[in-house]
Amino acid sequence: MSNKKVLIVEDDIIYSKYMSLGLEKRGFDVVVVRDGTEAFEEVEKNTFDLILLDIQLPKISGDLVLTKLRETYSPFELPIIMISAMDHTFDVVTYLKLGANDYIIKPTHIEVAIARMNTQLDLVELNKRSLEKTELETLNSLIITYNHEINNPLTVAHGMINLAKNKKDFVYLDKVEEALERIAGIVKKISELQNSGGVSKVDYLSGQKMIKLK
């Protein structure tokens, strides 16, 4: 998986060099920083696909960096893999609970690290596709709803116009006006939905899903 931008937050110069060279050879775009303060600055300036974050850092510890980043980015928005020489179960569980996507024990073979990274990047992509599918389903439901809601008053209006013509009785035009007002109301609701996103799904005929216009 190439062209992914990775931030390595690691104060060990030798290990960070080993990781950055290995990732760059495999097509990753890598930025290396030495502490948490620099990490925040980089995340503020750039968009990263994944962060490799050492636990023991100068100035700001890795757990505080993780906690702070999770206030803004979810695990699917910005995967963070912790790096540590400690392999205690308690440490692993603690950082996973804080929001880490994974935990790598160093020294780590580059291929193992990349496999773990690609797993997280794949999960991000799957989540993105799932959200896109949900959005498409919602859009389809909206189309069905609007088609139904607008066609009904249009049919009424068309029928009333024909009656008015045949009977030469323009009282029927009052019904036309009511139908057109109904259409105007639907258009207004569509505009409000665009601004608020307030929709809910309901069951309709033949098991079709429609959107309830609130």
Rank of each mutant, 00 (worst) to 15 (best):
H148V: 11
G99T: 05
D11V: 02
Y15D: 05
E132S: 08
K212L: 04
M117V: 05
I51E: 01
D102A: 01
F48A: 07
S196C: 06
I110K: 00
L154G: 07
V31P: 06
D203N: 08
V6N: 05
L23T: 10
T119L: 08
H88E: 13
Y103M: 00
V33G: 06
V124T: 11
I186H: 05
P58N: 06
Q56E: 13
S74W: 00
T108E: 11
D102G: 01
I81N: 01
L7D: 00
R26M: 13
G159D: 11
K165P: 12
K175Y: 15
K59N: 15
S130F: 14
V33T: 12
L21E: 01
K167P: 06
Y172I: 15
L57G: 01
E125K: 13
D12A: 10
E132L: 12
V112W: 05
E42Q: 08
T108N: 10
K68S: 07
L50Y: 02
T89N: 06
L64V: 11
L126Q: 08
M160Y: 10
A157F: 09
E137S: 14
E10K: 10
I105G: 00
E71S: 01
K168V: 14
S191R: 13
E132I: 12
F76P: 00
S61A: 12
I190D: 05
Y204F: 15
D174K: 12
E132K: 06
S16L: 10
K189V: 04
T134H: 14
I83F: 13
D91S: 13
P79R: 00
H158F: 10
A164P: 09
I183T: 06
E135Q: 14
E181D: 14
I161D: 03
T145R: 02
M160E: 15
I143W: 08
K17G: 15
K5T: 08
T94C: 09
S130G: 06
K17T: 15
